[in-house]
Every structure is written in C-alpha cells, then in structure tokens.
C-alpha cells in the first residue's frame, strides 16, 4: 500500500511585522512544516510502522519553490520514504494559490504516485482555506472525509473507518471507501520529533522535482481565480483596559479586579 501525504510549508509571521505591498516583509517571515500536515505525516508513518514487511510506502507531495525542500526534509526525517515537489517559477507570480488550483497540481502528483490513501491537513496555518484536500479528492475521483481525528484502516476490505470531528464535542463515525483523501485534524496522534538519525537519513532520501508540464498539467489552463488586491492589519476592535506597570503591579491590579468581580475573596 502507498500513502501520499501532502505537505505544505507554512508561512509564519512574527508578532511584530510590516506589510510590504501584497506580502509580509521578508525579515518577519519564517517557514515551518504546516502544523496539520505534521499530524498527517505522523499518521502515515504510524501506518507504515504498524504494517509488516515494509508494505506501506509513505510519499510526500508539496507544491513549493526550492526553499520548501527544507520543510520536505523535515517530513522525510520524521519517517516519510520519499518526496515529490511540484513547481514552476510562473507559480511564484501568483500571490494566492487557490485551493482548486492546488488540487489540480497535487492531482498530477497523485497520478504519478498512485496512492491508495492520501492524507492532507485540515488547513494551512497561513491561508487557512481548509479546502485543498476535498478539492483534490473530487479532482482525482477518490472518496474523502474532512476533519478526521481518528483513523482505522481495513485494507483488505478497502475501507477507512474514521471519526470526523464536528462542532461542540460531537464526532461523526464514517466508513469511507478506498482510495480516499482524508484531511487530518490536529490531536489525532502525537507527532514525533525527528531523531538525529532521521535527520541524517532524510538527506539521502529521494526528492523528485516535477514541473507541471512534466505532470501533463498546462499552467495556462489553471490560473488562480483569486487575486489579492490588498492586505492590512485588521483594525483593532479592542476596548481592553490594560493594566500597566511591572509584572507585580499588573498582577496586583488583576487581583483587585477579580475581587471586585466577586470571583475571589481578598
């Protein structure tokens, strides 16, 4: 069996930052393995570890520039077997890669890798579309389930029994036919830290780079349908009364407030 995990580099912004045109000034930006994808990678690696005789191959797929290979190596260090990266410099011109466009590019990777199961994250930490996984399933004609926080795979029956985490502490129990795309929710497992050995091994694991063209995708047909026109820091709706002073003075004022509110006794 083969499991494809989509892995995105999450653009993280410092608490203090400046906006430059339609982006964040570079010096305030760092890149990390997307939190949700970390759980997806862990889930795939655990499936592979639970299987006998290396029967499960874990492949990652990323749409991203060369920079993203650092993130990809993190996933490899945590136990993925090999990686696929899709990129074309023309993609760098788009300020938003919309989910349907990403789904089409990732579909190229799915056709190349032919997985039985695809795990994505529920959402990217930066764009937070929450849509790429299900759009991908529809594009490649796989079954799917979104916001999965428990997975039990019956490979022989070709069924994934999942829990979908709904609102308000309710979970939906669903059986999904394979092949399927599941979008993985945080908390489903405990993502491991990469070991030193893992990090070393990751350097020599295969990482194949494809242009869309090589995956039979014509970028001219794609084009992001979402165009960024402006970005801004949201106007603060804050009416907060701030307690000033050093930590001791701040804590004292907070203590007084709690007494006034009647929730603690002075």
């Amino acid at each position: 069996m083969r499991v494809l995990v989509t892995v995105k580099e999450d653009e993280m912004v410092d608490d203090e930052f400046e906006i430059d045109g339609l982006g964040i000034s570079e010096q305030y930006v760092s890149y990390e393995l997307n939190e949700w994808d970390d759980y997806a990678v862990e889930e795939a690696v655990q499936l592979s570890e639970a299987a006998e005789d290396d029967e499960v191959e874990v492949v990652t797929a990323t749409i991203g520039p060369e920079r993203s290979e650092e993130t990809i190596r993190q996933a490899l260090a945590k136990g993925a077997d090999r990686a696929v990266r899709v990129w074309d410099d023309d993609l760098a011109d788009a300020d938003v890669l919309d989910p349907t466009m990403k789904a089409q590019l990732l579909a190229g990777a799915v056709e190349e890798v032919e997985p039985d199961l695809v795990l994505t994250g529920v959402q990217g930490g930066d764009d937070a579309f929450g849509a790429t996984g299900v759009a991908l399933a529809e594009t490649v004609d796989y079954q799917w389930a979104a916001v999965v926080n428990d997975l039990d795979l019956d490979e022989a029956a070709g069924v994934a029994s999942v829990h979908r985490e709904l609102e308000g502490g309710v979970e939906e129990l669903t059986d999904v036919d394979l092949p399927a795309v599941l979008s993985i929710q945080t908390g489903i497992n405990e993502p491991r830290y990469a070991s030193l050995r893992g990090i070393r091994q990751a350097q020599s694991k295969p990482l194949d780079v494809y242009t869309p063209d090589e995956l039979d995708i014509d970028l001219a047909d794609l084009g992001s349908k979402l165009t960024l026109t402006s970005i801004a820091e949201p106007e603060s709706e804050s009416n907060t009364t701030l307690f000033e002073g050093d930590a001791g003075e701040q804590a004292e004022q907070l203590g007084d407030l709690l007494e006034d509110e009647g929730v603690v006794e002075g």
Partner: peptide, 24 residues
C-alpha cells in the same frame, strides 16, 4: 457555511462545477 460539514462538501461542489472557491 464554513463549518466542519461545509468543509466536507463545498470544495467538492466548487470543483465539480468549475467555480472559483473562496472559503472562510
């Protein structure tokens, strides 16, 4: 709706109908 169930069908519908999709 951008709810957990919305996440489970809206992207499929948009893809199938070839509509641009803006979420959340």
């Amino acid at each position: 709706p951008h709810t957990v169930n919305g996440l489970d069908y809206a992207p499929a519908v948009a893809t199938s109908l070839d509509l641009p999709l803006a979420t959340d």
